[in-house]
Design a protein around this nucleic acid. Sequence first.
DNA 1: CTGTTAGCGCTTTCAA
DNA 2: TTGAAAGCGCTAACAG
Lengths: 353, 353
Amino acid sequence: MSCDKPMKSKVTIRDVAKAAGVSLGTASRALNQSGHVSTQAIAEVTRAARELGYVPNALAQSMRTQSTGVVGLLVSDIANPLYAGIINAVEARLFAAGYTLLLASTHGDANREKSLIDLFRRRRVDGLILGACDSEKPEMLERLASELQVVALDRDITTEGTAIHVDHYHGALQATRYLLKLGHRRIALLTPGSTLRPGRERIAGFKDAFSAQGIQPDPRLIRAESSSMEFSFSEALALLSSPEAPTAFLCLGTRIMSGVLQAIRHSGRTMPDDVSVISIGDTDLAQLFTPPITSLNWDLAAVGTACAEVMLRSLSTREAKEPERILITTQMILRESCMPPPVAARTAVDMTS
Amino acid sequence: MSCDKPMKSKVTIRDVAKAAGVSLGTASRALNQSGHVSTQAIAEVTRAARELGYVPNALAQSMRTQSTGVVGLLVSDIANPLYAGIINAVEARLFAAGYTLLLASTHGDANREKSLIDLFRRRRVDGLILGACDSEKPEMLERLASELQVVALDRDITTEGTAIHVDHYHGALQATRYLLKLGHRRIALLTPGSTLRPGRERIAGFKDAFSAQGIQPDPRLIRAESSSMEFSFSEALALLSSPEAPTAFLCLGTRIMSGVLQAIRHSGRTMPDDVSVISIGDTDLAQLFTPPITSLNWDLAAVGTACAEVMLRSLSTREAKEPERILITTQMILRESCMPPPVAARTAVDMTS
DNA sequence: CTGTTAGCGCTTTCAA
DNA sequence: TTGAAAGCGCTAACAG
């Protein structure tokens, strides 16, 4: 307060020690509450630190302690509202535990993913949550896991490692069964990428729901190529104008559903009278659309919190090699976007309720 | 390849030098392309580094060079889709320039904001983009700006500093004028917080549009309290059930508009016949809603890129004390959510065209 | 062109 | 309880 503003030169713990009239070591111990310091010394040092506007250098600390207190999180797209909820929860939990979140987004680019992982390693993050891991590269992951804690977020990066998974399989199963019960047979499934875990699981659930009824889905109605809205729009439009048009859509995520909704509107049909829609992932759009859209939902905050907690746990225990796997369940929220298919479209082999 | 996997112990540049048969300094120079090294040495060192799986320690580097190559970005809410677009652009530009983005979210909590800024300082970020700065605290900002580069993102943190601003004033002016032209007089403005720059500017534009017509807006229709959907829902509902209900809504951001749309539906009215709506900020919801909603839009990527570029510029030039101020313009996207007010609601002093 | 050396700011032995 | 000193891994300055 009485002292002038410390110019450009950063004040170090050494300056604090000097100002407090103690040695460097004592200042460090006082600042870190590491015990073995007199109460008086603590008071002196604290005061000096405050007066000088001391800001501990986290880099130097990390250097000595060999740990940064930073956890990396790699996702494919920050803007995805489904990720946003997870990110918030991860960050909140980590922050509460004194950890910092370093967030990066791959935009689905494998090269970018590689450089970002490299970046995390150079910065010596203590742990890494992988929510984007497009290329399967066991040996690289192996090495990664050997030098830091890795938690998979809805990805199958290793058969053994720790992972937080959403139960897309049963979600898709339930949603599909619901549509089948309503009498739909020609159901389109639009999902970004079938190689990634979510897509794989959903397709499996979708197929198994059909199998349980002793029937098979039309493979041409499973479109698992791209997540862009433009793509899903043209895709859905093509589907709708084919002679064997689907009577229902199962769509993943905001972008895809947006495209589908536009395609439905563009083709002159109405939802749900002509075609039913289920959103996999509950979003603002699904809730507020007219009519509101039946969705498959899961607790994003729970996913994020689980990631963070598993990470914190493995960070605190040295070498606890008991990999955890957590499965988050999905719930179906019934709204008004599904109806039995129009009579004209019903097949002869209509099942009972 | 022939060597065994380097166990837990991290391989340092010293190991690389040893393996390459050169000194530590030479290894460093070779790795950093800093010249004054023989091509052969470079080859040897590079090979050794690759074989050993050397990962440079960014902490140690930063320690020596006194710069981390990290830029912090503080926003109030990562999940806000308007921010997401900006964040992506900032990250992309920074990444391309070899910088890392450290992102944090305050959730509108001033305490959290304080600790996060502190966190950034401890981690010695080279620059800080402040997109959340709820409490005005000149002296703290002053100190901050003295130790690192600060860029304000749609905030007035200092009267002098570098800033990227969105032209909310003219945006609100234009939108309001449009509604006035349609004949609306009772226009409600819902915005989160009037203390922050965006709110302030929008309210000013709103009022000035009225003034230009020689009339005054009803102050009770300006609601600038909270950004939550629940709040805007009840707020809008209350407004709609009052005797002097508004015939149009100007709403900010997804959350507020969601609440307003629900309130309109809940009150049994239809949009745009009974009440018009303009969204400030163009979102998926605005585009896909039925009917599609007229919006005020601005180039999120341009905002983000501008932030990053201004930051990179001030980072590269030593002490260039020429603060830049960039203003991003808004565009109105006319869709189908606005109509003249219902005849019953029109005032006697109806203006021409 | 290369090797040696001095720290960057901090924590943590080890003596006192 | 405290002070002195050794490094964490790296870059840059200085000799050779």
